[in-house]
C-alpha cells in the first residue's frame, strides 16, 4: 500500500532533486542518494531520502532510535538494496549488490560491534579475509609492515605491539584498529557506526582525532551518531533523519544543539 502512495511524489521529487544537483554544479559529492525508498513489508524505513557525502568532509548522520540511520547505512554498504531511487558514486549511478561490491567501489563500514576477532592479533585482524599469500603461505612480514604503516599514518601509536591480540586492547584502540582495517584498502568513503558509544572521555578524544585524520587524508566520512558533542566536535555537515525522512541537511555551522535536538525529536525546528 505504501508503494502505491509513494509513486507520485517520488517521481516529482526525484526530478526536482536532480535539477538541484545540476545547479550545484561542481558538487563533487563522492556518494549521492537520490529519492531512496526502503520498506520492509508494511514498514516504511526510508522515505525519499536524498543525501550527499562529499570527500574530505565529515558528514554526521543523526536521528533518534528508529529514524532509519541503520537502514540507510546498510543501503550504502550493500546489505540492503533500495526499493526506489538511486545511488550515485562519483556521479555515476551504481547498484551496490553486496558488501563486496561496496568494498570494490571504496566504501568501508565500521560497525558498532567492530567485527574484530579477539583471539587474533592486530595484523591478522586488519588483513582478515584479504591475506597476502606467497607460495601458498601467509606473507606475514609484508602484512605486518603494511599494517604498521597504516596505523602510523593514522597516528595510532598507543598500541604496544601490533602483534598483540585484539582482546588486550582498550576500547579506543579497538575502534582505531577497526578503522585502520577499513581504510587500508584504498577506500574513499568510511561509514562509522556510533564509534564513541561505548568509550570514556579519553578514548572518545582519540577516536575523534582519528576521524579528523581520515578527513585530512581526503576521505569521505559518514559518522552515524546521536552524540551532540561528537557532532559539533568533528562534523562539517549534518544530515538529520526523522521517522525515515531526511528533515535537515547542511553545513554544521547552520545548526546549534537546540535545533539538532528539535529536528531529531520532532522532525522540525522553529529556528
Amino acid at each position: 500500500m505504501s508503494s502505491d502512495l509513494g509513486d507520485g511524489p517520488l517521481a516529482q521529487s526525484t526530478g526536482l532533486e536532480l535539477g538541484a544537483t545540476a545547479v550545484a554544479g561542481s558538487g563533487t559529492a563522492l556518494l549521492q542518494m537520490r529519492g531512496v525508498d526502503k520498506h520492509f513489508g508494511p514498514v516504511q524505513a526510508l522515505y525519499q531520502v536524498d543525501l550527499d557525502l562529499p570527500s574530505g568532509q565529515v558528514t554526521a548522520l543523526c536521528g533518534d532510535n528508529g529514524a532509519g540511520k541503520s537502514v540507510l547505512t546498510r543501503c550504502i554498504a550493500g546489505i540492503h538494496q533500495p526499493d526506489r531511487g538511486e545511488i550515485l558514486w562519483e556521479g555515476k549511478p551504481v547498484h551496490i549488490t553486496g558488501p563486496r561490491a561496496a568494498s570494490e567501489l571504496g566504501i568501508e563500514v565500521v560497525y558498532q560491534d567492530l567485527a574484530l576477532a579477539d583471539n587474533l592479533d592486530i595484523v591478522q585482524n586488519m588483513f582478515l579475509g584479504r591475506e597476502r599469500v606467497r607460495r601458498g603461505l601467509l606473507d606475514e612480514d609484508s602484512m605486518e609492515r603494511s599494517a604498521a604503516e597504516t596505523l602510523a599514518s593514522l597516528r595510532v601509536t598507543t598500541v604496544r605491539s601490533i602483534r598483540q591480540p585484539v582482546a588486550s586492547l582498550s576500547g579506543g584502540q579497538r575502534q582505531a584498529v577497526a578503522v585502520a582495517k577499513a581504510v587500508m584498502w584504498n577506500s574513499k568513503l568510511v561509514l562509522l557506526d556510533e564509534p564513541t558509544a561505548a568509550l570514556g572521555v579519553v578514548q572518545t578524544r582519540m577516536v575523534l582525532d582519528l576521524v579528523k585524520t581520515l578527513k585530512d587524508h581526503g576521505l569521505g566520512v559518514m559518522l552515524i551518531t546521536h552524540n551532540l558533542n561528537d557532532i559539533f566536535e568533528v562534523a562539517d555537515r549534518l544530515a538529520i533523519l526523522h521517522l525515515g525522512r531526511k528533515v535537515a541537511e547542511g553545513p554544521a555551522s547552520e545548526f546549534d544543539r537546540q535545533s539538532v535536538v528539535e529536528y531529531m525529536t520532532t522532525g522540525r525546528s522553529e529556528r
Binding site: R155, V156, T157, T158, V159, R160, S161, I162, R163, S170, G172, Q173, V202, Q203, R205, M206, D209
Partner: peptide
C-alpha cells in the same frame, strides 16, 4: 614493537 603512549590514551 614497544611504543610508549604518545597520545593521551
Amino acid at each position: 614493537g614497544a611504543v610508549e603512549a604518545s597520545l593521551p590514551d
